[in-house]
Simulated assay, not measured.
Amino acid sequence: MRRDSVLVHRSLALCAALALVGSCGSSGGGEDAGGLPAAPTGVTATAGSSTSVHVMWNAVSANPRVSVYEVYRGTTEVEEVPASQHMVDVTRLTPSTSYVFTVRARDTEGRAGPPGRRVRAVTPAAVAADDTAPTRPGKLRGRPVGGRAVELSWSASRDDRAVASYDVYQGTVKIHSVGGGQTATVVTGLRPGTHYTFTVRARDAADNLSPPGSAVRLTTPGSDDGRGTAPTAFRATSHRGGGAYYLDLRWTPPRTGGVVTEYQISLDGRVATSLVYEGGAPRDRASYSFYVGRDAGVRFHVRIRARLPDGTWGGFSVERTVITGAADG
């Protein structure tokens, strides 16, 4: 776990929901009659390069809740991802090869539901000594589609061989991929009343990546006061160790449809530090301690917020008052 302000890559659960490009939203099936998780819907597979395929699906609601999704290539399980993640890049594949993928959900009791529909993807041929990236995609256009989605379209890139796929970014985070023959998609899982910046990059079969095309800035309609995205059950205390005082924070991560890997901690109205998880980010209960000085009796006002899977900051938690050397306020 690295505690600094550097963003880490997040596999986000933001996907396409347009019939033209397939479906991979945050809503999906429920339980079947037997109580098992339902089969994932909206499963799509798109070759990202000559050795990788991008697989996406809709979330499944279940009771007990879904714990993981299992991704199969043929009859072999090749990936297992947490319930908050609804897309994955399957790598180390063979060029010029047809693959069939399925996805199934497994609940917290270890019971697996039926697989979703079989989807096929063909990896393009490998190109020897190809170090030329595609040109940047043409002008990106977009428009909101309600408060939680935007539609994007762009002009095709050129490549000395062929464009294999397009990667869609929100800010600096890759959130989606589409095939090289597609120049439109819908990004879902967004927040109402929020400003977003999107770019698109082209990728060829040799994994050469183009520069980003022009950015489009969009604001989703509606309003969001942030209360639904704030960490809850936030508590703050202090302890003394090695002649110094530390603040000890505990909270429940917000339920955002994806794994939260970065938090920002505010002391007395100013950002004091960032906490970034490079792996194994907590989902049910989180904690963090950090140094605040050697003096007793110092009062701090502390709160915390999360960077959401759509790349924006959520709402702040309630503010707690802590006095070094005293019990939690």
Score class of each variant (00 low, 15 high):
Arg106Tyr: 06
Ala149Phe: 02
Arg148Tyr: 01
Arg141Lys: 12
Arg118Ser: 15
Arg106Leu: 05
Glu151His: 12
Ala149Val: 04
Asp131Ser: 15
Gly142Lys: 08
Ser153Asn: 13
Arg148Ala: 08
Ala126Lys: 10
Asp160Val: 15
Gly116Ser: 02
Thr123Cys: 04
Val122Lys: 11
Arg143Tyr: 10
Gly113Ser: 03
Arg106Val: 15
Val145Cys: 01
Arg158Trp: 06
Pro134Ile: 03
Leu140His: 04
Ala156Gln: 10
Glu109Tyr: 07
Val150Gly: 03
Pro115Ser: 14
Asp160Gln: 11
Gly147Asp: 05
Thr135Trp: 08
Trp154Ala: 06
Gly142Asp: 10
Ala156Gly: 07
Ala121Phe: 05
Trp154Lys: 04
Pro144Ser: 01
Arg120Leu: 12
Ala128Thr: 13
Ala112Ile: 07
Arg117His: 12
Gly138Met: 12
Ala126Arg: 14
Glu151Gly: 09
Arg141Gly: 15
Arg148Lys: 10
Gly138Arg: 08
Arg136Ile: 09
Ala133Pro: 10
Arg111Thr: 03
Val119Phe: 02
Ala112His: 10
Val127Arg: 11
Leu140Pro: 07
Thr108Ser: 12
Ala105Leu: 03
Arg141Glu: 15
Ala133Phe: 11
Ala125Phe: 13
Thr132Ala: 15
Gly142Ser: 11
Leu152Pro: 07
Arg117Ile: 11
Gly146Ile: 01
Ser157Trp: 03
Pro124Tyr: 05
Gly142Met: 09
Thr123Gln: 02
Pro137Leu: 07
Pro114Cys: 03
Ala105Asp: 00
Gly146Asp: 01
Glu109Lys: 09
Asp131Leu: 14
Phe101Asp: 02
Pro137Phe: 03
Ser157Val: 02
Arg117Gly: 10
Pro144Met: 03
Ala125Asn: 13
Asp131Ile: 11
Arg158Ile: 04
Val145Gly: 02
Ala112Thr: 14
Val127Ser: 11
Arg143Asp: 10
Val127Thr: 09
Pro144Thr: 00
Arg158Val: 09
Ala112Asp: 12
Gly116Pro: 01
Gly146His: 00
Gly113Glu: 04
Arg120Gln: 13
Phe101Arg: 02
Arg158Pro: 05
Thr132Glu: 15
Ser157Pro: 07
Leu152Gly: 08
Ala105Gly: 00
Val127Tyr: 10
Val127Trp: 11
Arg111Met: 00
Arg117Gln: 14
Arg111Glu: 07
Ala126Glu: 14
Val103Asn: 07
Ala121Pro: 00
Ala121Asp: 09
Ser153Tyr: 07
Arg111His: 10
Glu151Ile: 06
Ser157Cys: 05
Gly147Glu: 04
Glu151Ala: 10
Val127Cys: 08
Ala149Leu: 03
Ala128Asp: 15
Phe101Gly: 02
Val122Asn: 12
Ser153Met: 05
Trp154Cys: 05
Gly138Tyr: 07
Arg120Thr: 13
Ser157Arg: 06
Arg158Lys: 12
Ser157Ala: 15
Pro124Gly: 03
Arg136Ser: 15
Gly146Asn: 01
Arg158Thr: 12
Phe101Tyr: 11
Leu140Lys: 06
